[in-house]
Amino acid sequence: MSAPVVTRATRASRVAMIVAALAVIVLALAPWWAGRADLRLMGEIFLYLSLACLWNLMAGYAGLVSVGQQAFVGFGGYMLFALTIFGGLHPIVAILGSGVLAAMLSVPVAALIFRLKGAYFAIGTWVMAEVFRLTFAQISALGGGSGTSLPVDVVRSLADSRSGREAFSYWLALGAAITVIACVYLFLRSRRGLALTAIRDSEVAASGLGIDIWRTKLEVYVVTSAFTAIIGGLLFLQKLRISPDAAFSVNDWTAFVIFIVVIGGIGTLEGPIIGTLIFFLLRETLADFGTIYLMVLGAVAIVVMLKAPKGVWGLVRDRYDLELFPLSYRVRTKKE
């Protein structure tokens, strides 16, 4: 006789877990085996991966398609500078603080832009980001339109040696990526995550089940905004210099992130990871071509959206029935 068993885990997901754990250990040791330039690149990759996971949670799961997440990237960056320069806080405390402030700020922002639906919501988020950019450009204490640098003593407070600082900010980036992926994964596995999936599949049915759609979306928006600000703080801790145009760049913090998620596979946890790898592979090989590279990226994203809307990971998953992050339930007939 055989009895059906419902599980989430699969052999692939268990193997993936072990591989991931090993990879994390190897990556954590990178300051001892990687060169300075590679370390910097890998730090940037982890921060982009984090941004991609967060945008994917909003757009791919909560249906909040934002083209204005640069608002919170820039806000986090500026808060790092403001809280360390004027508040005398340690950079790590300042970055965490920027997350809290971003969460508080995101509530009134959401109250306004949630009034816009669909594509108009998207442009509304962009307007918000522009409001942020123009506002920070007016603050002369932070350098106005031309921006400012992180004071030397603030930089020194991270670590005494330059290599120590570089290792430290690399570990922060790695830690941030792991935290974001773990949080998104656990969130999607939780009751709330199920509610989100229900909303994505059918808003009408979800509200019939007693799910407060507005509130669930608000929670996702607030949490992603806070994390996005923290990532923004880490990005500008690497750069050590901030200006309104760099902090609130729609290309750097939104266009690339969207392309990463779309190419990798929107609405899956694996997608942003694959997409980030593809994005940096393309960037490192084509970056010399400048504008051509961006046009290629845009074209690839369009083709993927039209021909394989679930992205590269979607193609892989459909072909091999793979799921590295066990989210869906599977019914299995267990042989006894």
Partner: peptide, 12 residues
């Protein structure tokens, strides 16, 4: 999503 992301790609 498709119209939004395709026109966004077009913009870039």
């Amino acid at each position: 999503l498709p119209p939004l992301l395709v026109t966004f790609g077009l913009s870039v």
